[in-house]
Simulated assay, not measured.
Amino acid sequence: MIREGRRQGVELKPDSTHIAMTMNLSLDELASELGVSLTASKRDELHRRLEAEVSSIEPYPDAIKAISLLKAHGIKTGICSNLASPFGPKVREIFRQMDGYAFSFEAGVMKPDPSIYRLICDQMDVEPGHYFSDGSGRVLMIGDSQNCDQDGPRAVGIAGFYLDRTGRGTIHDLIEFAEMVVAHNGQ
């Protein structure tokens, strides 16, 4: 959409991506919000491309295994993601077993805004920075952005971890993270 706007010479706002990620808009509504004119053929093309992209979404194999491991140990799981609205239903479909979902397009804010982390904690009925009532765990988060998934959560009392799939960081995959969480809860 942004590329199409640029092609048309539309002066896009610096926060165009922010608009796409924090407003619950269809593709047509987003075009209107950004001031991008779509011909019928361009609209059809963008809808086809979006549909193809959404339908191609697959979870990392380690995500399914990690969630299963956490669930088997009674640990709540949730997804907190900067996400445009067309992708939300597919993510929910793939990850039906989650205890909460905080998507930027629904929350109206993007990570690392503190309110999105508080939203997911509220949905999961957990309090960041505090042990659960049985004293066996804390609120932890992992993701592939140091700013959004490590530093941002830490600002509200969530233990944020950086997932570095390149192998250079401390945690390389989600199973490793889940095993760490399970081991911590066993103490």
Rank of each mutant, 00 (worst) to 15 (best):
residue 4 E to H: 10
residue 8 Q to G: 12
residue 8 Q to M: 08
residue 10 V to P: 14
residue 10 V to W: 11
residue 16 S to Q: 05
residue 17 T to F: 02
residue 23 M to R: 13
residue 27 L to F: 04
residue 29 E to V: 10
residue 29 E to L: 13
residue 30 L to C: 06
residue 33 E to M: 10
residue 37 S to Q: 14
residue 40 A to F: 09
residue 46 L to D: 01
residue 48 R to F: 00
residue 51 E to D: 12
residue 54 V to F: 00
residue 55 S to E: 04
residue 58 E to A: 05
residue 60 Y to H: 03
residue 72 A to I: 05
residue 74 G to H: 04
residue 80 C to Q: 05
residue 81 S to N: 15
residue 82 N to R: 03
residue 86 P to Y: 01
residue 87 F to G: 04
residue 90 K to Y: 00
residue 94 I to V: 12
residue 95 F to H: 10
residue 106 E to M: 10
residue 106 E to F: 01
residue 108 G to D: 15
residue 112 P to V: 04
residue 115 S to P: 02
residue 117 Y to K: 08
residue 119 L to Y: 00
residue 124 M to L: 08
residue 124 M to H: 02
residue 126 V to W: 02
residue 129 G to K: 04
residue 129 G to W: 01
residue 133 S to G: 04
residue 136 S to A: 05
residue 137 G to D: 09
residue 142 I to K: 10
residue 146 Q to T: 09
residue 147 N to H: 07
residue 150 Q to C: 14
residue 151 D to H: 09
residue 154 R to K: 07
residue 154 R to Q: 11
residue 155 A to R: 15
residue 156 V to M: 01
residue 156 V to W: 00
residue 161 F to I: 10
residue 162 Y to E: 08
residue 168 R to A: 12
residue 172 H to W: 13
residue 172 H to S: 14
residue 177 F to R: 14
residue 180 M to E: 14
residue 180 M to I: 14
residue 184 H to N: 05
